[in-house]
């Protein structure tokens, strides 16, 4: 699939020329002449990268980036502009973080194409730590069908077991995808998919064994995370679901609205359930592959 770029600039001739160059380099370019039009595109189209001039007829490029960080926070943003850095007012936009490329740079179009490429392939503007093997991890994840009904029933049995033996509000199996986490079996609440930068499982999949957070408000990684507060998540224990090649697909986790400690026994139990979940998922993947004659490794 070609890389999709939203490109906003009010100057028609400049915009058309840049869009043409990007298109001829193989990118799928959506042009917008105004902030309004660009914002509309963000709402309707999945884009891999957003490029904009600083000054737009009805606002600024930073306003557009604000919308992007709300709607699809992982998306790389590039200011491609003739405005000097001193002309860019970042006062209301401190936490956005974006690339800046002067449009009068020699070979500006070539540099822009390189930059888009780098940012998209290296996932350079994500707001969370990435596993070293992220590409392999996502490739492994694609081989699993977690929404299969029989799989769902198995996972539900395991999450029910956890909620029976450990006194917490919620138990769930979370699958950490490229940009968001999906909750495929939940006890205590049905959770909608959550942006990856806001979930604790994003951090749990980096752990070799288990992530324990006794009080999110006392942990620098999570204390300012409003999404967790909205979901009444104050304490957490989660163990990564490791596939046969070691990649972590997601995690088996328990959360509570109150700060709490977890005993060694409880943590060990969660670890066992995570291993059982991972094995169930993998056996079903192998079964599916054997049925369809596909790759079962």
């Amino acid at each position: 699939m070609p890389v999709t770029v939203l490109y906003a600039d009010g100057d028609e001739s400049g915009r058309t020329a840049t869009a043409k160059r990007l298109s001829s380099a193989g990118l799928d370019v959506h042009e917008a002449a105004t902030l309004d039009a660009a914002t509309e595109t963000i709402g309707t189209t999945a884009v891999d990268c957003v490029v904009t001039a600083y000054k737009l007829p009805d606002g600024t490029g930073l306003e557009l980036f604000s919308t992007v960080r709300e709607a699809a926070p992982d998306t790389p943003c590039i200011l491609f502009t003739d405005a000097a850095t001193s002309e860019i007012d970042t006062a209301a936009f401190e936490g956005l973080v974006a690339e800046y490329l002067p449009s009068e740079t020699p070979n500006a179009h070539e540099r822009l194409r390189e930059l888009v490429d780098e940012l998209v392939t290296r996932r350079t503007q994500v707001g969370y730590p990435l596993p070293d093997d992220e590409d392999a991890r996502l490739a492994a994840l694609e081989k699993y069908d977690v929404d299969d009904l029989a799989t769902q029933e198995t996972l539900d049995r395991l999450t029910k077991l956890a909620s029976h033996f450990i006194d917490v509000d919620k138990v769930f199996v979370g699958v950490v995808g490229e940009h968001e986490e999906r909750f495929v079996s939940c006890q205590g609440a049905d959770l909608d998919p959550l942006e990856r930068e806001n979930t604790m499982c994003t951090h749990a999949i980096l752990e070799p064994d288990v992530l324990v957070v006794e009080d999110a408000h006392e942990d620098d990684r999570f204390k300012h995370n409003d999404a967790l507060d909205r979901l009444d998540i104050r304490s957490y224990v989660g163990a990564p679901l490791h596939g046969p090649d070691g990649a972590a697909l997601g995690s088996f986790c328990l959360t509570d609205a109150e700060p709490r400690a977890f005993t060694d026994e409880e943590i060990h139990f969660v670890r066992l359930l995570a291993d059982e979940t991972a094995e169930q998922l993998d056996l079903r993947r192998q079964l599916q592959a054997a049925r369809t004659g596909g790759d079962d490794r």
Binding site: G95, Y128, D220, N225
Partner: peptide
């Protein structure tokens, strides 16, 4: 940066930006 930042996510984003440039 962490002391001044209101959230952790922008700091990760900023660090990825710097380290990405260094790698490429």
């Amino acid at each position: 940066l962490l002391m001044y930042a209101e959230e952790f996510q922008p700091v990760y984003r900023f660090l990825h930006t710097i380290t990405g440039r260094v790698r490429s």
